[in-house]
Design a protein around this nucleic acid. Structure first.
Lengths: 236, 236
DNA sequence: CGGAACATTGACCCATGTCAAGTGTCGTGG
DNA sequence: CCACGACACTTGACATGGGTCAATGTTCCG
């Protein structure tokens, strides 16, 4: 097949599929600060596919998994949202995904009517939301490339490196972090079973690339070979 | 695991990941009509990942595959665009995907500056573009659910049914159509190899669900069982 | 007519899924 | 404070769907 030259490297997969509200305007920030604070239990749904999309939410603490479910229960996690992220944007009307807390979580709620008012007051906000949506689309496509084409090690390595990058971005330790979600969540995100996720973690541990002090805490010992694994530099 | 009830059925995967410009305003339509018409050879790239996003394009005839490539050549097709679809929307700056013609194709080109002018003249257009992007995001997520969780038969059946639906929407025969793309394109779209795609087509033929008069023409003989296959009603 | 590109089919293999048996770890109640 | 149960995670043995490699057909176009 006539293939275009692979000019672009793997790309930054797993950019969080949600808008960090830090980028937004102060009027919006003010409205949000007055919004209702809602507490969500671990595993509780903030909203479900088909629910009327009445609000947008900003995560204050905790973590949310955005997912879709097939009739027989197979589940695809589309992305995770962390403190600062804004979720519930998109088409007016109905939510198209479930938003499930993976740990006890607090969110600020903003009615879409208030959001609309914000946009009317500050048209630049509309542009920012458009751009945020575009970035989210780009992130989802990167994830597709990963779940569609990569092997288990590549997927897990990419996943860990995404955490590392996120931590660097928010000025926290990029080599050691807590995974707020379960193996099931990770598996459903990467399109793998929990067993494969677990085995792959063990493999990376054996290779001396990571440490697992406890099951939900990861220390990256050597980022470069991890990056090579993620980029598929082990096949040829 | 505490699973939410699977209240939502499989969803309409594979809604074309691009905007049909029919929904747009007449001012926009006028500008487009004056836009340059460009011819693209089969397999030629309309734009590549990393190119400056100077224009948006509307497909007039032919078909385009939007894809991303890993460093080692593995390719993920994110979606296909057909006549009437608008592509190149999204983040300003650089294209984040390749757009490759899967057959000889003609597109109308509109500079993003002109698009911006249209939006200034008609703010409602901005909203429509936002909604279009949101629909595209929803479609991409549906595709993720498919490539991440479904088996080969399920993927191929879904793919064919998406064609059927599209044809119904544009008032053409929903039971018989031409596949403009190669097996490689289909495979890279569904996350399968060409051999698996081919074998799966053969299997559906043996099951009496489809006919393949020639390799790029499909006739759906019995849609309902095909839908059941797509929805995974064969496992239990 | 001939060759290139695409598609099909078969044989085999391997990565990952499945099933099952442990092993932590945490929270609760005695 | 400990014992217990629930749940999450790990690990092993085995099964299998789909990938890989290779041979053959088919179609289309020069």
């Amino acid at each position: 097949m006539l293939m275009q030259s692979p000019r672009v490297m793997a790309g930054r997969a797993f950019t969080p599929p949600s808008l960090t509200s830090a980028q937004l305007t102060s009027g919006f920030e003010q409205k949000l600060a007055h919004g209702v604070l809602r507490r969500i239990e671990c595993r509780e749904l903030l909203f479900a596919e088909g629910d009327p999309a009445s609000h947008v939410y900003r995560i204050e603490t905790g973590a949310i998994a955005l997912n879709k479910v097939l009739a027989d229960g197979r589940r695809q996690v589309i992305g995770f949202a962390y403190p600062g992220d804004l979720i519930g944007l998109g088409i007016e009307g109905e939510h198209v995904m479930n938003a499930q807390a993976v740990k006890p979580t607090r969110v600020r709620c903003l009615p879409v009517s208030a959001l609309r008012q914000c946009i009317a007051e500050d048209p630049a906000l509309g542009v920012k939301l458009y751009e945020a949506l575009a970035r989210e689309l780009a992130a989802t496509r990167d994830l597709m490339l990963t779940t569609g084409q990569r092997s288990a090690v590549e997927r897990v390595a990419s996943f860990l490196l995404a955490f590392s990058r996120r931590n660097r971005r928010i000025a926290q330790d990029p080599t050691s972090f807590e995974l707020p979600m379960t193996r099931t969540d990770i598996g459903d995100f990467l399109g793998l079973t929990i067993e494969t996720v677990s085995r792959t973690f063990s493999k990376l541990k054996q290779l001396g690339l990571i440490e697992l002090p406890c099951s939900n805490r990861v220390k990256l010992l050597d980022i470069e070979p991890l990056q090579n694994l993620a980029d598929g530099e082990h096949k040829p």
